[in-house]
């Protein structure tokens, strides 16, 4: 049996590929051609954007956080946007970057899960590792066609008692670590997260993890001009995914009163 669908219905040619070892990409491509291919628009820059996403590993699993803002340049355009998304029963993704590309990804992943459930129905289900692999292939494929999805995405989850946390971006670059942050968070929150978490992942309970997360979100809100004091926190543990409703971040501005440039002084 020839397992390569591209060969089905074609005469076998032993002189050319006796052992069927040729990879797909060097075989003739008889796929459909797009007559308008020359005039297709590609994403060249993000338009409506989300800022940092933060994530960390703790005792029970992983925790992820993002604020609810989608900016249009410097305009705070949409202030109740969900940037954390549940994928299947074991995974949460969070995205910064272009929000329309992100919503396209959400639909793509949801369709993938539905088709897996219906057509495969083999008792297996996609966990965070598989979702991350799928996403990174998708992102790398798009960058290779010079038509990237303009996002940095965190993928976190717990399946079969194993927690997983990884990153993928518009270039297809991937990595994993016990603390992750995208965008401005990589500069501002990541050092705080590393200091709080690295080396003691198994000692941090949910309360402490929440404290670490909200502290980082607060620092980001103080310093990142494209952030908002409304946020969501998601956890993935053995008992599944829980994404919180949007919450208000407690901030203090008392100090600003005496500082020129912060307070109400006019000159």
């Amino acid at each position: 049996m020839d397992h390569f669908p591209t060969n089905w219905g074609r005469p076998r040619n032993d002189a050319f590929d006796a052992y069927n070892t040729y990879p797909f990409h060097v075989r003739p491509d008889n796929g459909p051609r797009d007559a308008f291919a020359d005039n297709v628009q590609r994403t060249q820059q993000p338009i409506v954007t989300g800022t940092s996403v933060l994530a960390l590993k703790y005792k029970d699993g992983i925790m992820m956080a993002a604020d609810c803002l989608a900016s249009y340049g410097s305009l705070a355009r949409f202030k109740d946007i969900q940037r954390l998304h549940e994928v299947g029963k074991f995974t949460v993704i969070g995205a910064s970057g272009d929000m329309s590309d992100y919503q396209y990804l959400q639909t793509t992943l949801d369709e993938l899960l539905i088709s897996e459930e219906i057509t495969a129905a083999d008792g297996h289900s996609l966990g965070p590792v598989e979702i991350h692999e799928y996403l990174s292939r998708l992102m790398y494929g798009r960058r290779s066609r010079l038509n990237p999805l303009w996002n940095s995405i965190l993928v976190g989850g717990v399946k079969d008692g194993k927690s997983f946390l990884a990153y993928v971006d518009l270039l297809g670059t991937t990595y994993s670590s016990s603390t992750l942050a995208t965008g401005y968070g990589a500069y501002i929150a990541q050092p705080l997260l590393r200091k709080a978490v690295e080396g003691r992942e198994m000692d941090i309970d949910e309360n402490e993890a929440r404290k670490i997360m909200t502290d980082c979100l607060r620092v980001l809100f103080y310093r990142d001009a494209r952030s908002l004091n409304k946020y969501q926190i998601a956890t993935v543990t053995d008992s599944g995914v829980a994404i919180s409703p949007s919450m208000e971040l407690g901030t203090q501005w008392g100090f600003a009163e005496g500082i020129r440039g912060y307070g109400a002084q006019t000159q």
Binding site: Y19, T21, P23, R143, T173, T174
Partner: peptide, 24 residues
């Protein structure tokens, strides 16, 4: 070098080696 290319390249080399193993 570029990590995304590197990981993809290793993946493809491993795949070709697996095909070779199955063939030979």
């Amino acid at each position: 070098g570029f990590a995304a290319d590197g990981n993809m390249f290793v993946k493809k080399v491993k795949q070709r080696l697996e095909w070779y193993r199955h063939a030979h």
